[in-house]
Every structure is written in structure tokens, then in C-alpha cells.
């Protein structure tokens, strides 16, 4: 409500306008639809699984209980879990959490760094074929992931890297077309003066890139890293194909597995919602810290 209320809004503003009121009502509705489901996740996660059916409409947790979280973290014995409606199966959530963190951080670091380098070459260096190569890179944005996923799966398999963290991160490690595009856009707009000065001092491109360009690009790099990290955290298809072992399974895949763990596939709803909450937590934390940055970056950089 605060940010620089633009004059045009003021010009058209009339007090107690029913339109305005209904606009607010609609907006409130949209916010409710966006946010309330998260309350329901919370409420279910703190419920006892066996009591959910009997209290399916109660606003408060049905039979408040931390069992679901214990179950997710493997702190319950199998028989306790089964008694509370869990599967009694062991799901290694801590390991998945760690895997997700590794997968997202490594790919983010690699993709952002290498893409920035390439973007610099595309934006600031003059070389023959530059625009052609850039177009080619950009064209990969149109290639549907499943199309490359099948051969990439085979490649990772041939490299003997199936079910390993390395195999999981490789396709994202060197670049993402979006990251190159994003950084190139920034470099194109960056002032040249400092660079030129350094150039006159005889500095090499490497030094210029690492000592001048990159520090100057800290803000867009942070934004890009945030966006990339969140995207990777939510990635499902590739990890589903490549990471089936405990050492390489990430949270999103683990969640899908958790759902179908119990005999004959009845979901352990409270356990599932507790797991969902935990999986969403890192992104929620990032969002609460960098929320403004993320929100404002959209529009400048929307993807997907």
C-alpha cells in the first residue's frame, strides 16, 4: 500500500467508491485462496491421523499431536507409527533434506557462476559468431525438459553416475539458458567506465571480470541465485529419473514416495502434511528474509 502511490491513482481516487471496496474484497479473496491452504497443512500436520476422518471439518487440529513430525523424522518406532495411521516405513527425511540442500546449492552456484562468465562474453566481449552462439543458447529455452531428459538419463547412466549426486547436478551445473540471458541483460546495461579505466591500466579480462564486474553485479547475482535456488528446490522430474537411491533422493521425490508408502497406498495425511511443511520450510525462510527482493525481481526477470 505504501510504495510511492503514483499520482494517477490519486487523480482517479474517489472516497467510498463501491468499486474500490469491491476491488479490495476481491483482492482479499485472492489472498485468502492463496494463503489459507497453508493453514490447512499446518492444522493437518498437527492432527492425529486416525482422528482426521471423524473431525474432517474441524478448524483446529483433530487431536493435537506431534506424532506426524516424529514420524517424518523417524523418531517413532514402526509400531507406534502404524498405531497412529502411518505406514511404519522408514523415510529418511533428514537425508532427503540434506540432498535437496546439496542439489540446490551446487547447481545454483555452478549455474550462476558459469552462466555469468558466459553472459559476460556475450555482453561485453567482441568476437565473431557471438550473436549466433547466443541465439543457439537461447534456443535451448524452447527445448522441453523431457525431450533432453531421456538422453540425459542415458548419458548419466553411461557415465555410471545414476543415483549419485554428481549425476543429479551435472545437467544444471554449467549453465541454464535463463541464467545466461538474465546476466547478459544486466551486463549490457552496466556502465563501462570502470572497466575502461581498468583496461587502460592494462588489466586483463579475467581480473576485470572477477574484481570489477562481478562485485558490481552482486545484486542481480543474488536475485538470480535466489530464483535459481528456489527453482531447483522445487525440481521434480529429473531427480525422479536419476535420484532413486537414498544418497541422491531429494525432498520432492521423497514426498511422492511418502504418499505411497503405506500398504495399498492409503496416504498418511497428517504425516504427509508434516512432510510437506518441512519441505516448504527452507523456501519459506528464504522468502521471509528476501521476500521484497524476490517480489520486486518478478517483472524484471519473469521466467516459466
Amino acid at each position: 500500500m505504501t510504495t510511492i502511490s503514483s499520482p494517477k491513482a490519486g487523480a482517479r481516487r474517489r472516497p467510498f467508491n463501491w468499486r474500490r471496496t469491491s476491488a479490495w474484497v476481491l483482492l482479499a479473496l485472492a489472498i485468502a485462496v492463496s494463503v489459507l491452504p497453508f493453514y490447512w497443512v499446518l492444522r493437518t500436520a498437527f492432527s492425529t491421523n486416525g482422528s482426521l476422518a471423524a473431525n474432517s471439518a474441524s478448524i483446529l487440529p483433530a487431536d493435537f499431536n506431534l506424532g506426524a513430525f516424529k514420524r517424518v523424522f523417524g523418531l517413532q518406532t514402526a509400531s507406534e507409527a502404524i498405531a497412529e495411521g502411518g505406514s511404519g516405513a522408514s523415510i529418511n527425511f533428514f537425508q532427503y533434506l540434506l540432498n535437496s540442500l546439496l542439489f540446490s546449492s551446487i547447481t545454483t552456484a555452478g549455474a550462476v557462476f558459469f552462466s555469468s562468465m558466459a553472459a559476460y562474453a556475450f555482453a561485453r566481449l567482441r568476437w565473431k559468431g557471438r550473436d549466433g552462439v547466443f541465439t543457439l543458447f537461447l534456443g535451448t529455452m524452447l527445448v522441453p525438459p523431457i525431450f533432453t531428459a531421456l538422453p540425459n538419463f542415458l548419458l548419466v547412466k553411461n557415465l555410471g553416475l545414476l543415483n549419485s549426486m554428481l549425476g543429479l547436478v551435472l545437467p544444471y551445473l554449467f549453465m541454464t539458458p535463463f541464467a545466461i540471458f538474465f546476466m547478459r541483460q544486466f551486463f549490457l546495461n552496466m556502465s563501462r567506465e570502470v572497466e575502461e579505466a581498468a583496461m587502460l591500466d592494462g588489466a586483463k579480462h579475467w581480473r576485470i571480470f572477477f574484481q570489477i564486474v562481478m562485485p558490481n553485479a552482486a545484486a542481480p547475482i543474488a536475485t538470480l541465485a535466489l530464483l535459481t535456488f528456489m527453482g531447483q528446490w522445487n525440481e521434480y522430474f529429473w531427480p525422479l529419473l536419476v535420484g532413486t537411491s537414498e544418497e541422491s533422493r531429494v525432498l520432492t521425490v521423497g514426498l511422492g514416495v511418502f504418499k505411497s508408502q503405506s500398504p495399498q497406498g492409503a496416504p498418511d495425511w497428517s504425516g504427509l502434511m508434516a512432510a510437506t511443511l518441512i519441505s516448504a520450510l527452507p523456501v519459506l525462510i528464504l522468502f521471509s528474509i528476501f521476500g521484497k527482493k524476490i517480489v520486486n525481481s518478478i517483472g524484471f526477470s519473469g521466467t516459466k
Partner: peptide, 24 residues
């Protein structure tokens, strides 16, 4: 409403993985 808070609230679902949205 140009508030960042409102925009943040509306953005919340997008931060969830597809898998999470689906399970929810």
C-alpha cells in the same frame, strides 16, 4: 494495492513445488 506484503502473499503458492501444491 501496491504493497509488497500483498504481492508476497499472492506469490506464496508459486514458491511451493508442484509436488507440494498437488499433495496439498
Amino acid at each position: 494495492a501496491k504493497s509488497t506484503l500483498i504481492r508476497g502473499a499472492l506469490l506464496l503458492p508459486y514458491l511451493m513445488a508442484n509436488v507440494i501444491a498437488a499433495l496439498l
